[in-house]
Design a protein around this nucleic acid. Structure first.
Length: 684
DNA sequence: ATTAGGG
DNA sequence: CCCTAAT
């Protein structure tokens, strides 16, 4: 159990213990200490990084230098080594063409045509776009484009969908105010070089986001910008945000005070049923039916929870998560991709991309680019307000990152590494209070989002863009923990104050009462909302044929009522298989054997095994009933026998054997089996 | 802690 | 696989 203790250590380099024996209660549940991996720090820092990126791109500056902020994530080699057991090689360098083969948007920027096509594919793109903090300017181009048609805005490039009846004239007006008009051009071609294009992570621009992770007693993770020439915003307004970012960076442990005072929620998360990362915000007012429908649809199918997926560079994984959100990692070890210097035991990874699956925005017809921009900013801020956390994926599925689960996954095995992945996702347990709703509903404190929004408003104003719905104050929302795992975020805004209002009003940082406010809704969608994520549910681990074989054999000998013994006999060293699991598996085996082969799923179980399952099941069922009948009859421990000729012999008459006796001789109830297992039959 | 069953 | 009641 000493080893157990080590496991509870939140050290990133947890040891894979040599579990002596199956714990009596492998299923013991309880509050598991979460592996933090320096989560807090990481979250804030990543947030800052993203925010910075967003900021930068908001500038929509045509500058397209390759010297973007460069962040590196350096993980102590030990940390990885312990988990991967020398499989660091998987983390090969991916400096170039990191996006190759992956369905990422970033790959589409190579030429204008592709971009156009991409836009047309918006529906699909929406659900799986690369979140690159694309700017509103970028979006605006889409706005205009779409607006010319059905007035339904679709910002697909960044996975943002905004629908509403935009006023064309306004857009046009806004257009003139936008710093970079190119961004508003209908033709994306003019934006080819714009950093605001989704392809913010194209290798070409070389602005990969890297996080450097240093091992530190205090900070497991230290984030720093190793080089930056473009990070600093040129505009004054940006400083505000920048300052904020800096503040975040300096605040230890994500001490973004107002952002995490909801400890209750995190507690509830420990409980499986209490977890609630789903939150729904919706405005009180109605939207135009066209998007009303859309929204409704969305809210039913899953919303919010943006998550980026950080996966190992396995292509298979890339494909798996192509529609989710993904960040690719690559090793940047000094000594080469897979080389490790014993003296410099660190593995350096870089986040190639990070995306948030979907972000749907509903905006009123009076909306302006400015309001949209702000709204998006709010949404992002709100989402990331709680910081980010690194999730662990196994075979494409989220798994808890507590040590127990990690051990279960067997990621220490080399074969498993291929399916191991990581992802960035909002740290909901520490989420911004405003988005942490109670079970029923809650109203967001208006002043909460106001802070950053205020800054943004100024920024917008400075940019010359009139922000009509500049009242962040109106961000009122209701959170619902919808049973169907719906995530929905609706941010209402005040469109009335829109364009016509003086800028001064737009700049106000003071929350304004929501009066006549048509809602400006933002729906953050996450198609894979069904994910339990923090769920304590163990990962699914289908039984292999050999396991089935072992199980069948054990049951043949021990019967169906001694699962513990079955476990001990056949799965003693497979800690992830509890006797309950074995029992369940047997149950399914019996079922499987009872149905037609066409109805069976998963890895096919050899028919002979299924035959044995049926035979054993039949026998033991019968036997059990007889036992019940004969109150105190001797318990036959191993009445079932399989003869060398492939015959399963069962004989209750001769089943009366000493308990524990493994073998018996039977002559009745034969069942022809494809294969015989002579070894089981010593006598005969 | 196990078993047995339903979910 | 999970959850529970019953041993």
């Amino acid at each position: 159990m000493v080893q157990k203790k080590n496991l509870d250590n939140s050290s990133p380099g947890f040891q894979v213990p040599i579990i002596p024996r199956a714990p009596r209660s492998a299923r013991t549940r309880g509050v598991h200490k979460k592996a933090t991996y320096g989560r807090n720090i990481c979250a804030i820092e990543l947030l800052a990084c993203l925010a910075g990126k967003l900021l930068k791109e908001n500038e929509c500056s045509a500058s397209n230098t390759a010297s973007e902020g460069n962040y590196q994530l350096t993980i102590p080699r030990n940390a990885l080594h312990d988990q991967f057991q020398g499989k660091e090689k998987l983390l090969k360098s991916e400096e170039q063409g990191s996006c190759e083969g992956g369905p990422f948007i970033s790959e589409q920027a190579s030429n204008d045509n592709q971009k156009k096509d991409f836009l047309k594919r918006s529906p699909e793109v929406q659900s799986g776009t690369l979140w690159d903090c694309s700017s509103v300017y970028t979006n605006s181009s889409c706005l205009e484009k779409e607006n010319s048609n059905d007035k339904s805005v679709t910002i697909s490039k960044s996975g943002i969908v905004a629908s509403g009846d935009l006023n064309s004239e306004k857009l046009v007006a806004v257009k003139d105010q936008v710093t970079d008009e190119n961004c508003l051009k209908d033709s994306m071609g003019d934006c080819a070089e714009m950093p605001c294009f989704p392809n913010a992570f194209s290798s070409r621009q070389n602005n990969d986001m890297r996080l450097d992770r240093k091992y530190d007693d205090e900070n497991l993770l230290r984030f720093y910008k190793s080089s930056s020439t473009k990070f600093k915003p040129h505009k004054p307004s940006s400083h505000i945000i920048n300052r904020r970012i800096r503040k975040l960076l300096t605040s230890k442990n994500g001490k973004v005070a107002p952002l995490k005072k909801d400890s209750d929620h995190s507690k509830s998360d420990t409980g499986r049923k209490g977890l609630n990362q789903k939150r729904t915000f919706y405005s009180r007012e109605r939207y135009r039916h066209d998007f009303l429908q859309k929204r409704r649809k969305l809210s039913r199918s899953c919303i919010v929870t943006s998550d980026g997926v950080l996966s190992s560079e396995s292509d298979s994984i890339s494909h798996q998560f192509g529609m989710n959100g993904e960040a690719r990692v690559s090793s940047l070890g000094v000594g080469g991709p897979a080389s490790f210097d014993a003296e410099n035991p660190q593995v350096t990874l870089s986040i190639k991309s990070f995306k948030i699956p979907e972000l749907f925005i509903d905006i009123p017809e009076t909306a302006t680019v400015g309001s949209l921009k702000r709204t998006i900013m709010e949404a992002v801020t709100t989402i990331l307000g709680g910081g980010l956390r690194v999730g662990v994926l196994l075979q494409g599925k989220k798994i808890r990152d507590d040590n127990r689960t990690l051990l279960q996954t067997g990621i220490s095995c080399k074969e498993k590494l291929d399916t191991l992945g990581f992802m960035l996702e909002p740290n909901l347990t520490q989420a911004h209070p405003s988005i942490l709703g109670q079970d029923s509903a809650c109203t967001l404190p208006r002043n909460v989002p106001g802070q950053l929004t205020g800054s943004l408003d100024k920024h917008i104003s400075d940019s010359g863009v009139c922000d009509s719905a500049s009242n962040p104050a109106n961000l009122t929302s209701v959170c619902n923990n919808i049973v169907d795992s719906t995530h929905e975020l609706t941010v209402s805004s005040n469109p009335d104050i829109a364009t016509d209002k003086p800028l001064s009003e737009s700049r106000t940082l003071v929350p304004v009462p929501e009066i006549n406010l048509e809602p400006l809704a933002i729906v953050l969608a996450n198609q894979k909302c069904k994910r339990p994520e923090l769920s304590q549910r163990r990962i699914r681990r289908p039984f292999s044929v050999s396991e089935v074989e072992a199980l069948v054999q054990a049951v043949e000998q021990l019967g169906t009522g001694r699962w513990r013994d079955v476990k001990l006999q056949a799965f003693e060293n497979e800690d992830h298989r509890t006797y309950v699991d074995l029992k369940d598996k047997w149950k399914t085996l019996v079922h499987t054997a009872s149905i037609s082969p066409q109805q069976r799923r998963g890895e096919p179980v050899p028919q002979d095994l299924l035959d044995r399952v049926l035979a054993a099941h039949s026998y033991w069922s019968q036997h059990q009933s007889k036992q019940n009948g004969k109150a105190n009859a001797a318990v036959a421990q191993t009445p079932l026998r399989i003869m060398a000729n492939g015959v399963v012999a069962m004989d209750d008459a001769k089943a009366n054997v000493v308990a524990g006796s493994p073998l018996m001789i039977f002559t009745d109830c034969p069942a022809v089996l494809p294969q015989a297992r002579a070894e089981v039959m010593p006598d005969c």
